[in-house]
Design a protein around this nucleic acid. Structure first.
Length: 825
RNA sequence: GCAGGCGUGGUGAAAUUGGUAGACACGCCAGACUUAGGAUCUGGUGGCGUGAGCUGUGAGAGUUCGAGUCUCUCCGCCUGCACCA
């Protein structure tokens, strides 16, 4: 063991003399000393060890912003550091890695403003983050750290994109994107705030652009059904299920005819979840953007009105379209649709309440049983036919279920049977079939940005889009003269000159590189796999490493990532699984989520409000251990919490108390039975509460135990040693120091986690509450497991009980062993 | 509107899942001590009442020997999605 441990003194004894004199807890010297020693001894470095059970603990890696660490980051990192440290002490081989999600807009905006290359500012920010994270004493294995913007990393992100393309899951499509006419740039949904550009405030419009898309919808069903076996907190599961939005129904064809009866040879396809209500259809609606509106224009008698309405709708932003729930629309005069169930000819409308992106962009309207259709029907004086019994449709639509009426062969059937029969009827007559629809859309994967992974594709006049040869990976970002998009809103890479020109990998002819880059979510979709084998240059990770480390056993992160990162990475993982590159079909066994930390007044912390707490200041004033412990004590882990410097002080006092308690430790004495009871109770509670992520009450248990110990004149060594081990995951520096002062030459952080003895957890005297008619009247002390008779006798001997039951008839006495007596009089 | 969650002292919150409501802290009050410190230590602290006691977990009802916990109705707050056919 090296002499550093004793502050340069030759022996433990010499060192002991020195600290025996100091009275105050000097966290500054203690914390930096132990951080260095742990680092020198590579204490948190892990390797595959097949003799040990592994445990993979993961927190979402941060975006290294220029503002540095926020007090919210350590909440998640400390919590899982506690979990990781405890698991390590329990004998698991623990992987707890950290890295950086380093591509992104802020660095690019900073580059536009200052001309500093994003790679340079990002590197500086990462260095600052690493310094801050190290100052908090997290047990990350820093040997495994990487950034998504490292070419050795994004080489594999690009490689995976090529695999997606080869399997037909990556494709180019012309879709409407958010476009800022002032910045001349495509915006991600997150960059649109209230329908306006986040940066310049201009109204965002829709613009059609060719974009790379990823067919995540092909995995929609599996993304729902595979949630079943996973230990995710419920709100994460339900949010993902709602976001994917599966609905079961049918697709039906309604043939279109001109007013004079000529068949227009167009089938209007609609999606409905209620094909059984088809006899209540009184009109049809298409989205104004529907292709038929253009195709049939020559047939319409009110062309101008139709064109007008379509143009007005196109101008409306999504927000305006959803905010305004009053109905509007235009009838397509000159055509009718034929209801295939009853042969009736019904009018067709366009209206903006039908969306082009969902289902088929056209609906059959059943105004009696859908409020939106009802409102529309009232506006245009359309007939309303009730086909479900039981409701009153004079004021509003009847949206409950009941038996069918006015429905020919469906009359008298319930929903389930009618659905089946209606779909059978459609199928056997060739105008429809059962169909599943999802709200989930395919993933827009193109960004017109510089600071992202170049998409490794080239366009050849003859061969179309081709992936570059895998031997050319990574395709590194070229230098560009400036980071603005060009006037057409193309990515800054379109200015990369010679870089753009290349050869077609298929025919060898002239080809041009894709200039769009990938979104942030690309690099974060598989980073947990890279941690398993971060320095591998031949594969993204070896099979051996993946077999050993996967799955992630516990993944904690923000709720805001539930429908983006969490869903994307599950999809990405399933794709790799289908290709045989990863051993499991789901990446994360357990997912939890932490609450936000707000400023003292309940507002969000932000630069503009000037209420940001800098973790550096807290570490300097109170030390990392106090900071860590406070964040665990602040409140229930999954709920929002408000920062309070006063509560932080309370925790600081507690940490000092543990430090000074050491003076009472006496090697000469043995623990008494009630001491052991307190100790084992503490072991039980802390152990269980960490597993249940009730970190706040785990800390309370430690405080209760410390209060117990500080009432004693002298403390047996075993009692204090156990305290130090139990606190070690929370306040590792202090505990390592006290461990050394106990004369140990092992590391506290490498000690075995204490195990409680169930026999010693319960005291052998219990206090039993005595109730009279359910009201508390007193407490009796009884030996544990005393008989009912004894307890009853003791209860009746209470003065209180005697007085208040005098002259009354005792009807019943309920005795719950070791808990309560209730006398009913 | 839909989905999920929440409502307990002056404050942050506990409550072994139906069994002594307010653990553990913060704050406050009273006292002790002093190397006057971001001190420390002792006691008290839900409300009303001098007291025995009464009362108390958003409101109201119900089930139960017993409800913060279970059931129903209502009120308020938070988060996500939102004309999804």
């Amino acid at each position: 063991m090296n002499n550093d441990r004793y502050n340069g003194k030759e022996s433990f004894d010499a060192w002991k003399k020195e600290w025996a004199l100091e009275d105050r807890y000097n966290f500054r010297t203690i914390e930096s000393k132990w951080q260095k020693i742990w680092d020198d001894n590579q204490l948190y470095k892990v390797d595959i060890d097949k003799n040990k059970e592994k445990f993979y603990v993961l927190v979402e890696f941060p975006y290294p912003s220029g503002a540095g660490l926020h007090v919210g980051h350590p909440r998640s990192y400390t919590a899982l550091d506690v979990v990781a440290r405890k698991k390590r002490m329990q004998g698991f081989n623990v992987l707890y890695p950290m890295g950086f999600d380093a591509f992104g807009l802020p660095a690019e905006n900073y580059a536009i403003k200052t001309g500093v290359h994003p790679a340079i500012s990002t590197k500086q920010n990462i260095d600052n983050f690493v310094r801050q994270l190290k100052s908090l004493g997290f047990s990350f294995d820093w040997n495994r750290c990487f950034s998504t913007c490292d070419p050795e990393y994004y080489k594999w992100t690009q490689w995976m994109f090529i695999q997606l393309f080869k399997k037909g899951l990556a494709y180019k499509d012309k879709i409407a994107i958010n476009w800022c006419p002032s910045c001349k740039v495509g915006l991600a949904n997150e960059e649109v705030v209230n329908g306006c550009c986040e940066r310049c405030g201009a109204q965002v419009v829709r613009k059609n652009k060719e974009q790379w898309m990823i067919a995540i919808t092909k995995y929609a069903d599996r993304l729902i059904s595979d949630l079943d076996g996973l230990d995710f907190i419920d709100r994460v599961k339900t949010q993902q299920i709602n976001w994917i939005g599966r609905s079961d129904g049918a697709e039906l064809d309604f043939a279109l005819y001109a007013d004079d009866g000529t068949d227009l040879n167009k089938k209007m396809k609609v999606f409905t979840t209620r094909p059984d209500t088809a006899f209540g259809v009184t009109y049809m609606v298409m989205a104004p953007e529907h292709a038929f509106v253009q195709d049939l224009m020559s047939v319409f008698k009110n062309k101008d009105e139709i064109k007008d309405y379509a143009a007005k709708t196109a101008q409306k932003s999504d927000l305006q379209r959803t905010m305004d729930d009053s109905k509007s629309g235009v009838e397509l005069k000159g055509i009718k649709a034929k209801n295939p169930f009853n042969g009736q000819m019904i009018p067709v409308f366009i209206s903006d309440y039908v969306l082009t992106g969902y289902g088929t962009g056209a609906i059959m309207a059943v105004p009696a049983h859908d409020q939106r259709d009802y409102d529309f029907a009232k506006l245009f004086n359309l007939p309303i036919i009730q086909v479900l019994d039981g409701g009153d449709i004079s004021e509003k639509a009847w949206e409950e279920d009941d038996l069918h009426i006015n429905s020919d062969f469906l009359n008298g059937l319930n929903k389930e049977d009618a659905m089946k029969k209606a779909i059978d009827f459609a199928q056997s007559n060739g105008f429809g079939a059962a169909k599943v629809n999802y709200k989930l859309r395919d993933w827009v994967f193109s960004r017109q940005r510089y600071w992202g992974e170049p998409i490794p594709m080239v366009y050849c006049e003859h061969c179309g889009w081709q992936p570059i040869d895998e031997s050319e990976l990574p395709l590194t970002l070229p230098e560009v003269p400036d980071y603005h998009p060009n006037d057409e809103g193309e990515s800054p890479l379109s200015k990369a000159g010679a870089w753009l020109e290349t050869k077609c990998p298929k025919c060898g002819g002239k080809a041009r590189r894709e200039t769009d880059t990938m979104p942030n979510w690309a690099g974060s979709s598989w980073y947990f796999l890279r941690y398993c084998d971060p320095h591998n240059s031949k594969e993204f990770a070896s099979k051996d490493a993946l077999d050993y480390w996967m799955n992630v056993d516990w993944y904690n992160g923000g709720m805001e990532h539930t429908t983006l990162h969490l869903l994307y990475s599950r999809f990405w993982h399933k794709f790799l699984y289908d290709c045989g590159y990863v051993p499991t079909k789901e990446p994360y066994n357990k997912r939890t989520s932490h609450g936000m930390i707000l400023a003292a007044n309940g507002e969000k912390m932000s630069k503009s409000r000037g209420n940001v707490i800098n973790p550096d200041d807290i570490v300097n004033s109170y030390g990392a251990d106090t900071f860590r412990l406070y964040e665990m004590f602040i409140g229930p882990f999954d709920q929002v919490a408000m920062w309070s410097e006063e509560s932080l002080m309370g925790v600081y006092r507690f940490v000092n108390k543990v430090y000074s308690l050491f003076k009472k430790v006496d090697a000469q004495i043995q623990p008494e039975e009630k001491d052991l009871h307190a100790m084992h109770k503490c072991i039980k509670e802390v152990t269980e509460r960490i597993d249940q992520m009730k970190f706040n009450t785990a800390v309370s248990s430690l405080m209760t135990y410390v209060n117990y110990l500080s009432d004693k004149e002298k403390i047996a060594v075993e009692l204090y040693e156990t305290l130090i081990k139990l606190m070690c995951p929370f306040t590792p520096h202090l505990c390592e120091e006290m461990w050394a002062r106990l004369g140990k030459d092992s590391f506290a952080v490498a000690e075995n986690w204490p195990v409680f003895n169930p026999d010693l957890v319960e005291d052998n005297v219990v206090s039993i509450a005595v109730q009279l008619n359910g009201k508390m009247r007193g407490v009796i002390e009884m030996p544990k497991d005393a008989s009912k008779d004894e307890v009853e006798k003791a209860a009746f001997s209470l003065e209180n009980v005697k007085r208040q039951t005098e002259g009354k008839e005792i009807r019943k006495v309920i005795v719950v062993p070791n808990k309560i007596v209730n006398i009913v009089a």
